[in-house]
C-alpha cells in the first residue's frame, strides 16, 4: 500500500485543564474520503484545526506525505498542498467570485507583492476553469458577499481546489445548507476528488452525507477515539450507537448507504 497522505499520531490538546483532544491517531490514505464524527464538544473541530495549523497541539505529530507539518502556520501548510474550507464559509466578500479564485492563484505563483500588474487580469482563465468545474462560472463577475449561501460554499471549494492540493480539509462542509444542496455539494466534491486523486478529511453532522461518501470514519467522544473503520463497522458499533447515532442516526446511515449501493 502507498504511503498515507496524512498521518496523525498521538494528537493532544487541552484548554484550561479541560482535555479537548486526547491522544488521537489516524491515517488518511491517498484518494480517500475520511470523516470525523461525534457529538458536539467531542473535539472534532479542535482536531481539525490542529491538522490545518490554526491550533498548536500540546503533543503529537502531524505528517503530510511523510513530512512533519506539526505546528506550521496555515499558510505554510497550504503551500505544501492542503486546501481548506470552513464551517462558516470564509471568502473575500467584497471581491467578485472569480477574483476570489484568482487570489489563490496569485498567492500560489507568489505574486502577492507585485505593485504594478492589474490583479484582475492575472490567471483569469485558470480561475474560470476551476469555477466551471464547480458550476459557478456563470456567476463569476458577481460580488461574493451577495451570493446565496450554497453558492458561497461552492466558491470556497473552488478556492480550495485552485492550487491542486493533495489533501482537502473540510470542516462541516454542508453546515447551514438545505438537505438537497448538501447532497449536491458533497456529490460534487466526491466526484472532483476522485477524478483528481485528492484525499479529503472532513467533519460532518449530517449522517446522510457522511455515510453516503466517507470511505473511513473516526468517531470521537470527549476527545477520545471511540471507533474507527468502514461505514458498516461504525454504524454497527453499539458504543457509537449509544453515544452518538441513536435510532435516527442508524436509520439515516442505513438510508444513505443503500442509496450509495
Amino acid at each position: 500500500m502507498s504511503e498515507p497522505v496524512l498521518q496523525v499520531e498521538g494528537l493532544r490538546k487541552a484548554f484550561g485543564g479541560v482535555i479537548a483532544v486526547d491522544t488521537v491517531s489516524f491515517e488518511v490514505a491517498a484518494g480517500r474520503l475520511f470523516a470525523i464524527i461525534g457529538p458536539n464538544g467531542a473535539g472534532k473541530s479542535t482536531c481539525f484545526n490542529m491538522v490545518g495549523g490554526q491550533l498548536l497541539p500540546d503533543a503529537g505529530r502531524v505528517q503530510l506525505a511523510g513530512q512533519d507539518i506539526t505546528g506550521l502556520p496555515p499558510r505554510r501548510i497550504w503551500r505544501l498542498g492542503v486546501g481548506r474550507t470552513f464551517q462558516v464559509a470564509a471568502t473575500f466578500t467584497a471581491m467578485t467570485v472569480v477574483e476570489n479564485v484568482q487570489m489563490a492563484f496569485i498567492s500560489h505563483r507568489r505574486r502577492l507583492r507585485a505593485l504594478l500588474p492589474t490583479a484582475r487580469k492575472l490567471y483569469r482563465a485558470e480561475a474560470m476553469a476551476v469555477l466551471e468545474r464547480v458550476g459557478m462560472a456563470d456567476q463569476a463577475e458577481r460580488q461574493c458577499g451577495l451570493l446565496a449561501y450554497g453558492d458561497i460554499k461552492r466558491v470556497e471549494l473552488a478556492i480550495a481546489l485552485a492550487h491542486e492540493p493533495r489533501l482537502l480539509l473540510m470542516d462541516e462542509p454542508t453546515a447551514g445548507m438545505a438537505p438537497k444542496e448538501r447532497i449536491a455539494l458533497m456529490a460534487l466534491t466526491a466526484d472532483i476528488v476522485r477524478e483528481r486523486g485528492i484525499s479529503v478529511l472532513f467533519t460532518e453532522h449530517d449522517m446522510d452525507v457522511v455515510f453516503a461518501h466517507a470511505d473511513t470514519l473516526l468517531v470521537l467522544d470527549r476527545g477520545r477515539t471511540v471507533a474507527t473503520g468502514t461505514p458498516d463497522a461504525v454504524r454497527d458499533n453499539p458504543e457509537v450507537q449509544r453515544i452518538y447515532l441513536g435510532g435516527s442516526g442508524v436509520e439515516a446511515a442505513q438510508r444513505a448507504m443503500e442509496a450509495r449501493a
Binding site: G52, P73, R75, F92, H108, I159
Partner: peptide, 8 residues
C-alpha cells in the same frame, strides 16, 4: 481566516 488559508 481565508487569507491565511491560501498562503498569505
Amino acid at each position: 481566516l481565508r487569507a491565511d488559508a491560501i498562503g498569505i
